[in-house]
Lab assay of single mutants.
Amino acid sequence: MKKYKITVYDEKTGEKHTIEIEMSEEELEELAKKLAEKHNVKVRIEKV
């Protein structure tokens, strides 16, 4: 498992949230996809 920083940005409201999380790359990609689809936000992932 690796550490990642996830930034979620909502273009409508301008809200931006960043968290650090430790998980596998596959789980992370699935999480990012679900966030983007369900909440209509942009998701950026960076390795820490």
Rank of each mutant, 00 (worst) to 15 (best):
E20M: 11
L31C: 09
K5R: 15
M1K: 15
I6H: 00
K38Q: 13
K12N: 14
I45W: 05
K3W: 11
K2D: 15
T18L: 05
H17K: 07
E37L: 06
L35C: 09
K33H: 12
A36T: 12
D10H: 05
E25I: 08
A32Y: 12
T13M: 03
K5L: 14
L28P: 01
S24E: 10
I19V: 07
Y4M: 04
E29V: 11
E29F: 14
E26S: 11
M1H: 12
K42I: 14
I21N: 01
K42V: 14
K2N: 15
A36W: 10
V8C: 11
E30I: 11
L31D: 00
S24K: 08
H39V: 11
I45R: 03
V43L: 02
K34P: 01
K33R: 11
H17L: 09
I21S: 03
G14F: 03
T7W: 05
E30C: 06
K33L: 10
E15V: 08
T13P: 00
K47P: 14
K3V: 06
K38E: 09
K47S: 14
T13Y: 02
L35Y: 06
L28V: 15
H17M: 13
E11Y: 09
L28D: 00
E27D: 11
E20L: 14
K16C: 12
V41G: 15
E15N: 08
R44M: 14
M1A: 11
E37I: 05
A36F: 12
T13W: 03
K33P: 02
E46S: 06
K38G: 12
K47E: 15
H39M: 07
H17G: 03
T18D: 04
T18G: 02
D10A: 01
A32N: 06
K3C: 07
T7Y: 08
T13R: 02
E11M: 08
E29S: 10
M23N: 01
M23F: 05
K34D: 07
E46P: 01
E30D: 11
R44Y: 07
R44V: 15
K5S: 06
E25K: 06
D10M: 03
V41C: 10
L31Y: 14
E27I: 05
K3F: 06
L35M: 08
H17A: 06
V43Q: 01
N40F: 04
I45P: 02
K12Y: 11
R44W: 07
A32F: 14
K12A: 14
K47G: 11
E26N: 12
V43S: 02
I45Q: 01
K5D: 01
N40Y: 03
A36I: 10
K2H: 15
V8W: 14
K34I: 12
E27S: 10
T13D: 02
K12D: 14
H17D: 03
L31N: 01
K42Y: 00
K12R: 10
T7D: 04
H17S: 09
L28Q: 03
Y9M: 06
